[in-house]
């Protein structure tokens, strides 16, 4: 599958979807002007990937900020991963949050409540 590598800006996240190197990650800030068109290629990619998923898919979210419109699209990504998990694939979500950011930690907890998929919360120190 083709590699998706989007470099983040001050309003769009960095996205890497790279099967060969086993990197699946969304990080940074997300408040795109048009959320649907930003996330569409990512969701399409995941849809195609789900049929030929690697032995284990570890998907990392390392966001520092996302707006409510993006939160809906992030759930769509998680729902795709949930589908994969339900169809027997090995999937793990890693939700990274800055150690002093309760809101981002809580956002992870809420997603973990909504989707039925192995979900790890990981705090990290901001430099």
């Amino acid at each position: 599958m083709e590699v998706i590598k989007i470099v983040g800006t001050d309003d769009t996240p960095s996205v890497t979807l790279d099967v060969a190197n086993e990197i699946f990650e969304v990080s940074g800030r997300s408040l795109p002007e048009d959320v649907a068109s930003f996330y569409e290629p990512i969701l399409d990619w995941l849809e195609r990937y789900s049929d030929e998923a690697a032995a284990k898919t570890v998907f990392n979210f390392k966001l520092v900020y996302f707006n409510t419109a993006s939160s809906k699209m992030l759930l769509d990504i998680l729902l795709k991963l949930e589908e994969m998990y339900e169809s027997g694939k090995d999937v793990l979500i890693r939700w990274h949050f800055p150690e002093d950011d309760e809101d981002m930690e809580e956002a992870g907890e809420e997603y973990a409540d909504i989707v039925e998929v192995p979900f790890e919360q990981i705090s990290y120190a901001m430099d």
Partner: peptide, 30 residues
Amino acid sequence: LKQLYKQQIKEGRLSNKGGAGLGFIDIAKK
């Protein structure tokens, strides 16, 4: 508010203007 947020994010659709119907809930929550 947490419950309402979870309900709305699951059931709500993104409008054609790109709104998720979550703004007021999110502001009150934050």
